Simulated scan of single mutants.
Amino acid sequence: MNLESTRRRLTERQADTVDRLTRAAVEVLGEEGFAGLTVRMVAARAGVAPATAYTYFSSKEHLVAEVFWRRLAASPQPEASTAEPVDRAVAVLRGVALLVADEPELAGGVTSALLGRDPDVEHLRARIGLDIRRRLTTALGEAADPDRIEALELLYAGALVRAGMGYGTYEKLADRMEAAARLLLE
């Protein structure tokens, strides 16, 4: 998958380097956790110089946020013609929550990374938020109003922080978000 970098447009070779770095980041996260992750470790795992890695990623937070963004961008969206709007919105929330459910170290890292102040992270956080908003708006169709969308965004953000703090698994988070979304929307 060739996604535009948050810092610049990429040639095919550069896109390959970024792909290798993001794959290596997931591996290192699984072994070391977010606290132990460094861009240097990821660069070594990916077979690139640290300076090259820093050309693409300003920080470990930026790198991990990019991993999440790429997974979100590649994830399928619920079919607009299927199910009821509430069911489609729930499917969006569940899909986002389960993007990292099988990888607890990555899940915790994503939560930490997305809370960062790095300008590149802020840019990705905005892209992620807009993508999720677009998915929710599409899912709700005519039932999409700004207050409902914002309530679902607050639900998702709070659930992400809660899961990142260790108050339950992402699978349980998805179930709780579904229940809360149904309370809000039905």
Rank of each mutant, 00 (worst) to 15 (best):
A101V: 01
D102C: 02
E103G: 03
E105L: 04
E105R: 13
L106Q: 12
L106D: 07
A107V: 01
G108M: 08
G108Y: 06
G109E: 10
V110R: 05
V110A: 10
T111Q: 14
T111C: 14
T111L: 01
T111R: 15
L114S: 06
L115P: 07
G116V: 00
R117T: 07
R117Q: 10
D118K: 04
D118V: 05
V121Y: 04
V121T: 10
V121A: 13
E122S: 06
H123K: 11
L124N: 06
G129D: 00
L130T: 06
L130M: 09
L130R: 05
I132G: 01
R134G: 15
R134A: 14
R135L: 05
L136D: 06
L136G: 05
L136W: 02
L136C: 04
T137M: 00
T138W: 06
T138A: 11
T138M: 07
A139D: 07
A139N: 02
L140D: 03
L140S: 05
G141Q: 04
G141Y: 03
G141L: 03
G141E: 05
G141I: 03
G141W: 02
E142V: 09
E142F: 00
A143C: 12
A143R: 15
A144T: 05
A144W: 11
A144C: 03
D145H: 14
D145M: 05
P146V: 07
P146N: 07
D147Q: 12
R148P: 11
R148C: 04
E150P: 09
A151C: 06
A151K: 13
